[in-house]
Design a protein around this nucleic acid. Structure first.
Lengths: 130, 130
DNA sequence: ATATATTTGCAACAATATTGCATTAATAAA
DNA sequence: TTTATTAATGCAATATTGTTGCAAATATAT
């Protein structure tokens, strides 16, 4: 198995995820790191982090792609089966760790992963709009 | 209210949706219509169809965007709150009209729309892989 | 048949993502 | 600590996806 190295850029990306309470787009990450590394490097770091199961990818209703750090406490196996909320006002995406949809599937489908994204207005915007 | 016209290109797009059992990307639609109309026209037709509530937009786990015809039988109001299935093998997206997730949201969120996409292996691929 | 407002094509542009390749740097081994 | 190995990076080029402005074409109402 190939090892994945701890580089300056990778550490910087992880720090940004640590600080952030919302999911981040490639562009948002690059804005903070434009003097640390190249645009392309960030794409490659994100790919690696996804592969290593440290970060997961979220695609918004409008087609924009964001990334968030997984916080699988200490489970061996984990599935990103929690929901995401996408605010139509501030465009922030937050993980709703505790929202887990229940559903009944037709037979003959093998489900590996689910993506449950809700959109609307987040509490922050709901309050400030009064 | 502005009227939306029935043009050759729009009719052609609708025919493609009619024929297809899966959701289609802009690229897939354009492949069939490259001698009927321009790339841009298809984007604009899709925009109109979404506005007219004839087509809905689905964004896949990998960030790709697809479109599918709504089959809201005869309801006055309808919400696209059904699930979609994205096959990891053939990459087709199908609407699971009858799969409707139930979930409990934290307070203070105003939910306007939901997107529930499951990925894995579809029945067709499951059978052919035996 | 004519008026008018929508739709289209084209060209240009913007944003996002990918690839090849030489160089740099992190890690393992000596 | 030094050296060897291979992952990671930077840069340039390219691909893909989506958007905009404007003149010309076309669908619809009158």
């Amino acid at each position: 198995m190939k090892t994945t190295r701890n580089t300056t850029a990778k550490t910087a990306v992880l720090e940004i995820f640590e600080k952030s309470t919302t999911a981040l787009s490639h562009t948002e990450i690059y804005k903070e790191l434009h003097d640390v590394c190249d645009r392309v490097t960030i794409y490659r770091i994100l790919d690696r982090l996804i592969n290593d199961d440290i970060v997961h990818k979220i695609s918004n209703l409008d087609g924009t792609v964001k990334y968030a750090k997984c916080n699988h406490s200490h489970q061996k196996v984990h599935i990103h089966n929690h929901a995401h909320f996408s605010c139509e006002n501030c465009n922030e995406i937050t993980c709703l760790e505790n929202v887990k949809p229940s559903y009944i599937m037709p037979h003959n489908y093998k489900v590996n992963e689910i993506n449950f994204t809700l959109s609307g207005i987040c509490p922050k915007c709901l309050n400030s709009n009064i």
